[in-house]
Design a protein around this nucleic acid. Structure first.
Length: 317
DNA sequence: AACACGTGGCC
DNA sequence: TGGCCAAGTGT
């Protein structure tokens, strides 16, 4: 959960998740849909599916015991070198380096490493320093400490160098150039992509959801059906095996933008209201009706939740 | 190497 | 506000 996600965001998700899935075996036994349900709103949903797969592998190949070596851990889906290092160092108290965003920033400043983020040479140098500094004794304490130093003192903007126990030995600070490290990552400016969702509501107020494909954005989550710009509302009925005569009315909802790391999605919802008599149609393996007020026992993206919430508030008003 | 993958926080 | 980032990994 903590991969690319701040700890304060994770905390409530972590608590709910551990309450529902208190052991590797319980997680392995759960359905993917339910695991995704507990990830709804957290983002990077691939992590949830990898964690579920990892739990299944741990039960199948490791007798239900989380492996204690970096090699065995990195062979599990979703666990790379840094996460494996954190598990080995903190859970098993064995020497293994980590290189997360915090350690990366501390080391970049301490050793004035200004290579491009992600470049092979930069990564190699950072990992070498991480490894050289990882102690034999109290490796769990050290690992937590260097992460916390980055999270609370050696922060990205306005680092608190006067509070830093490493300040006198930090090359960037000695040069008064702590703001120059780590060098800024070059990020492509966000492009706008367009998407259109059909928000189909039946006479009982339930919304039609479709399971998204296992690849791409919001993989394996449930959402209002997305269709290409070329699909017209008039042929909508055929696409879902719904007689067009069951459509009471259609309505173009207000467009809204959803920001991602590298692009913006401009979402154009089209509301399709069905007559009450049509509430039992379109129950297939990847289509289902969902009442917004019911607990979703499957994964939804934050955007899907937003849409469903809007539908529910409109019904109420 | 470059890119996809989500959402919320910060300035 | 838009850009950048966060307890990164897999393709």
């Amino acid at each position: 959960m903590l991969q690319q996600t701040q700890a304060s965001t994770v905390v409530p998700y972590f608590n709910r998740f551990l309450t529902r899935f208190p052991s590797v075996r319980r997680l392995a036994k759960a359905s993917e849909d339910e695991v995704l349900e507990y990830w709804t709103g957290l983002g990077y949903y691939r992590r949830a599916r990898y964690l579920h797969m990892a739990a299944i592998q741990i039960v199948g190949k490791h007798a239900g015991q989380v492996p204690d070596s970096v090699d065995a851990l990195t062979s599990l889906p979703g666990i790379g070198r840094s996460t494996a290092g954190a598990i080995v160092a903190i859970a098993f108290r064995q020497t293994a380096p980590i290189l997360d965003g915090n350690v990366r920033r501390v080391l970049s400043r301490f050793y004035t490493i200004n290579g491009k983020r992600g470049a092979a040479n930069t990564e190699k140098r950072l990992w070498a320093h991480a490894e050289a500094n990882t102690p034999i004794k109290q490796v769990d304490v050290y690992t937590q400490a260097i992460m916390d130093l980055g999270a609370t003192v050696c922060v990205r903007s306005k680092p608190k160098c006067p509070d830093c126990p490493l300040a006198s030995e930090c090359n960037a600070h000695r040069q008064g150039r702590e703001h120059d490290y780590p060098s800024l990552a070059k990020r492509r400016s966000a492009r706008v992509q367009h998407a259109r969702f059909f928000v189909v509501i039946n006479g009982k107020g339930a919304c039609l959801l479709q399971k998204r494909p296992p690849r791409g954005v919001w993989a394996s989550l449930w959402s209002p059906p997305q269709y290409p710009q070329t699909t017209s509302v008039s042929v909508f009925g055929d696409d879902f095996d719904l007689p067009t005569t069951t459509i009471a009315k259609t309505l173009a909802g207000p467009k809204f933008r959803h920001a991602f790391s590298h692009y913006q999605l401009e979402i154009e919802p089209i509301y399709v209201f069905l007559r009450a008599s049509c509430s039992e149609i379109a129950q297939t393996h990847d289509l289902r009706w969902h009442h917004p007020c019911d607990r979703a026992e499957f994964g939804l993206s934050a955007v899907a939740v937003k849409l469903l919430t809007e539908i529910d508030s409109k019904r109420a008003s």
